[in-house]
Simulated scan of single mutants.
Amino acid sequence: MPTILKFNGLRAVIYLNDQRPCQVHVMGHGGEARFELRGPDGPLELRESHFFPHARLNRIAEMLAGQMPRLVADWRALHGRH
C-alpha cells in the first residue's frame, strides 16, 4: 500500500487490491478514514471513518480536495483508468 501523500502527521494511501471506485485511505493519530474520489475535479465523499473526530475529518477532506487531480492520477497509475 503506497503512501501517496503525507500531511499533519497523517498519511494517505492507496491499497493495491482496491476495487472501483477510486479511493484513498487516510491513517494516523489512531484513526482511519476512506474517501471516494469522484474524478479529478471532485467531489470527494467520506465513505467510512474509524476514530477520527468530525472536525479532523473536515480538515482531512479539505486537504484531499486540494489534491484531487494528483490523487486520482496516482490511483489510476496503480489500477488503470476505470
Results as ranks from 00 to 15, higher is better:
residue 55 A to T: 14
residue 62 E to W: 07
residue 61 A to R: 09
residue 19 Q to H: 15
residue 42 G to P: 03
residue 52 F to I: 06
residue 27 M to T: 13
residue 80 G to E: 04
residue 66 G to H: 03
residue 52 F to D: 00
residue 12 A to W: 02
residue 22 C to P: 10
residue 79 H to L: 03
residue 41 D to H: 13
residue 39 G to C: 11
residue 14 I to V: 13
residue 75 W to M: 09
residue 35 F to N: 06
residue 70 R to Q: 02
residue 41 D to V: 06
residue 65 A to C: 11
residue 52 F to H: 11
residue 15 Y to R: 02
residue 45 E to Q: 15
residue 55 A to S: 14
residue 75 W to V: 11
residue 20 R to S: 08
residue 15 Y to F: 08
residue 43 P to D: 06
residue 37 L to R: 04
residue 32 E to I: 10
residue 1 M to L: 08
residue 15 Y to S: 03
residue 2 P to Y: 01
residue 5 L to R: 12
residue 15 Y to G: 02
residue 75 W to N: 07
residue 35 F to K: 07
residue 81 R to D: 15
residue 11 R to T: 05
residue 14 I to Y: 01
residue 72 V to E: 00
residue 7 F to W: 02
residue 73 A to V: 04
residue 78 L to R: 10
residue 41 D to F: 06
residue 62 E to T: 15
residue 57 L to F: 10
residue 45 E to M: 10
residue 16 L to D: 02
residue 5 L to C: 08
residue 54 H to Q: 15
residue 55 A to P: 11
residue 40 P to R: 14
residue 59 R to V: 07
residue 56 R to H: 12
residue 13 V to S: 03
residue 10 L to N: 01
residue 62 E to A: 15
residue 28 G to M: 06
residue 30 G to W: 09
residue 27 M to N: 14
residue 81 R to S: 10
residue 74 D to S: 11
residue 19 Q to A: 11
residue 16 L to R: 14
residue 59 R to Y: 05
residue 42 G to A: 04
residue 48 E to W: 04
residue 74 D to T: 01
residue 76 R to V: 06
residue 69 P to I: 13
residue 82 H to Y: 11
residue 63 M to P: 00
residue 64 L to N: 10
residue 32 E to A: 11
residue 17 N to Q: 11
residue 58 N to L: 15
residue 51 F to T: 14
residue 78 L to E: 08
residue 27 M to P: 03
residue 21 P to Q: 05
residue 66 G to V: 04
residue 16 L to A: 08
residue 40 P to C: 07
residue 16 L to M: 04
residue 33 A to I: 05
residue 43 P to M: 05
residue 39 G to A: 10
residue 62 E to C: 10
residue 65 A to P: 07
residue 51 F to Y: 12
residue 62 E to Y: 09
residue 11 R to K: 15
residue 26 V to L: 06
residue 72 V to F: 04
residue 3 T to V: 14
residue 57 L to E: 09
residue 59 R to Q: 15
residue 19 Q to W: 09
residue 77 A to W: 08
residue 68 M to H: 11
residue 54 H to K: 14
residue 5 L to D: 07
residue 49 S to C: 12
residue 45 E to T: 15
residue 27 M to F: 13
residue 28 G to S: 07
residue 48 E to H: 06
residue 14 I to R: 00
residue 1 M to D: 09
residue 20 R to L: 08
residue 68 M to W: 07
residue 80 G to P: 01
residue 28 G to R: 04
residue 33 A to W: 10
residue 30 G to V: 05
residue 40 P to V: 13
residue 75 W to L: 08
residue 64 L to P: 02
residue 35 F to D: 01
residue 33 A to V: 05
residue 16 L to T: 09
residue 58 N to M: 12
residue 22 C to G: 04
residue 59 R to E: 14
residue 16 L to Q: 12
residue 41 D to A: 08
residue 62 E to D: 13
residue 5 L to P: 03
residue 29 H to I: 02
residue 34 R to Q: 14
residue 74 D to V: 01
residue 2 P to W: 01
residue 46 L to H: 09
residue 22 C to V: 05
residue 29 H to Q: 12
residue 65 A to N: 14
residue 45 E to P: 04
residue 11 R to Q: 14
residue 6 K to L: 02
residue 46 L to A: 13
residue 65 A to V: 03
residue 53 P to K: 09
residue 22 C to I: 03
residue 38 R to C: 10
residue 31 G to S: 12
residue 33 A to K: 13
residue 60 I to G: 00
residue 25 H to I: 04
residue 24 V to A: 08
residue 63 M to E: 14
